[in-house]
Design a protein around this nucleic acid. Structure first.
Lengths: 100, 100
DNA sequence: AAACTGCATCGATGTTTATCGATATGGTCA
DNA sequence: TGACCATATCGATAAACATCGATGCAGTTT
């Protein structure tokens, strides 16, 4: 075994990405957006289902956008969020076990 | 949109699973075990590469075992760890975006 | 312009978590 | 049996994080 797997900085990046997924509220957000008929959801649609205060919801949304899992588009007074499926695919690829 | 995505308890479970992956040291452990020629690695092989004290390494290994991502087998005075590929596959499946 | 609305930011608080020294545990070797 | 060794557990500490009330900020409506 000459190779020692992924390096330090790659591990940092991956861990940061998983940290974005490591909260029930954020998982719930992703699920809700993924199941939205229009492919997008506005922040106002999330406060209810998440059962959390508005600043908390905003906080979670910001984390998901930062992680590249959601995009935010502000139209009028609403902020609309969409999934970034490529980002999820990327994670799925990273979790594939090479040789079995 | 009648369905509201996954429910509260499922979100909790998933978040807990991702929390196990949300640390650079643990990502590094999984990578090292995945690349081990014998398919397993003992705890003593990890203290070095991780650059962390022995109790800390033990702590991370416990979390990964608890999450079902590693198995521990104690042989003699060493503890050997193996990947659980099915568990990773399970996560990969959960991250698949349904309709695109 | 003024009131209103939806959302982001700020500041504070309690909880969780990573880390490590010290210690316990259980197997091995002489 | 007693010294030793690899690992797990304990206890303490500092940093990270989720949460929310208060406030700020654009865009909207009357």
């Amino acid at each position: 075994m000459t190779d020692a797997g992924i390096d330090e900085s790659q591990a940092d990046e991956l861990a940061e990405l998983f940290r974005a997924l490591a909260d029930p509220a954020r998982i719930r957000v992703l699920s809700l957006v993924a199941n939205a008929t229009a492919g997008e959801l506005c922040a106002c649609d999330l406060t209810g289902p998440l059962d959390r205060a508005q600043p908390t919801v905003s906080h979670h949304l910001a984390i998901l956008v930062d992680a590249g899992l959601l995009t935010r588009e502000k139209r009028g007074r609403w902020a609309w969020y969409r999934l970034v499926p490529q980002r999820l695919d990327q994670i799925r690829a990273l979790l594939a076990v090479p040789q079995r």
